[in-house]
Design a protein around this nucleic acid. Structure first.
Lengths: 234, 234
DNA sequence: CCAAAAGTGTTACGGCTACACCCATGT
DNA sequence: ACATGGGTGTAGCCGTAACACTTTTGG
């Protein structure tokens, strides 16, 4: 029976976020450099202790606001709990890890110790933060395929080729603009604003501007093999 | 700056599992009935406090072993953190929730207070445990489509119609045996053992026995729209 | 008129559903 | 023979990838 009196451990709980943004054609993550031991000079994820009066979602949003002035988080979601007893030196600390996404038209002012780093070329990271970044990247890549999560990487309006570059950078491989437009349009995610851009100095047809129909993530492709029998509506 | 000295809250951390099994044609979850306040007589998920020397995965496996004699967990995975400050009365308690799966040929002996309940017809549940059960059910349903997770619901060998009933119960809708066999075979998940069953008293062709090729979950259907360009191998 | 960039039309293909049909057994 | 349950063949559909082609601009 619950003999909780003999052993009722209390422990620290921190929240950490891998905040991702496509910058200069590559997927980057926000890291700050530690100024103290342990792991001095290594780069780590923003976050901090969970307070007693907030849940983990509120906590990570608060900490990101306080510490790194990122108010433009278009999307935040839980990744997983990281709880190895020795994941950080010293007293036990369990971490709830999050994925955060910033649209590419934002360029938040950062504190001195904070910088964006390409997820494919990370500096020396602290603790288990590299694993968290990898998880965040993989989660984003999956969700780009079967959800509308692209809205969280894109500006309010954009051309298809701009969107293609965002997707290519995030996915790590070339995406065809032709098919990207068709896939997203057929699913009803993309709608034309009616406006067009002026072509650059080298000419070319002016590009139509689009926006995402919904902000707020939703699964758009059931990708369900073994799906329920089709409703006979004919 | 991290003014952690003034506020360094320590809190309780529990691990909880929604252990699912297909029993009597329906998807069921293991619950025990509370004998004490708070929420006396309500039904709750097995689990308990996280110890200082273990991570959450080890903890949930240990607790399931100790408390409910389920040694046949074919699959365990993290679901999410539940952390609302008032999710349980009294001192702050954060929960890491898990999904557990038991193959249908096991019938573990249960303590007096513990019973299986259909996920579609739950009794009065304690705290936020109903939400956790829903999450577990939804996760299972998704993964049945694009992973080999069926192995964790099925006995070591089985007929296609037995498998069909497991899938139907878990998914909540009728699945065609014909297509189930083909989908799983094409993906290389299913292999024939060579044996057959004897038909029942009413006759019929004897069914071939199959097994899952791999135990251990893996994503089998990339379901990736926007997938990387095909490798030109011809 | 040509180059550049955007967007459309068309074909091919893979993977799935649906359903008709064939197979093997008990009575 | 025939009922019962298991398994296969095949046609059609849906959605995407690939690529040729058309459209619209600047020089």
């Amino acid at each position: 029976m619950p003999d909780a009196t003999t052993e009722a451990p209390l422990l620290g709980h921190e929240v950490l976020a891998a905040v991702l943004q496509v910058r200069a054609g590559s997927l980057q993550v926000l890291l700050w450099q530690r100024a103290r031991e342990p792991h001095m000079h290594r780069w780590s994820l923003p976050g901090g202790r969970l307070r007693l009066d907030e849940d983990v979602e509120h906590s990570i949003r608060r900490q990101l606001k306080e510490k790194v002035d990122v108010r433009q988080l278009a999307h935040v979601e839980q990744l997983a709990v990281f709880s190895a007893p020795d994941r950080v030196p010293g007293p036990r600390m369990v971490a709830s890890a999050f994925l955060g996404l910033v649209p590419s038209d934002n360029d938040p002012e950062l504190p001195e110790d904070t910088r964006w780093h390409p997820v494919g070329d990370l500096p020396e990271t602290a603790f288990d933060h590299q694993a968290i970044v990898r998880r965040a990247r993989d989660r984003l890549r999956s969700k780009l395929s079967y959800t509308n999560i692209g809205f969280a990487l894109a500006p309010p309006t954009f051309t298809v080729s701009a969107l293609r570059e965002l997707y290519s950078a995030a996915l790590g491989y070339r995406v065809s603009a032709t098919n990207l437009q068709r896939v997203l349009s057929r699913r009803g995610l993309l709608e034309p604003t009616g406006d067009t851009t002026r072509p650059g100095r080298s000419g070319g047809r002016p590009a139509a501007l689009f926006r995402f129909a919904d902000r707020g993530m939703q699964v758009t492709d059931p990708f369900a093999v073994l799906r329920p029998p089709a409703a006979k509506s004919r």
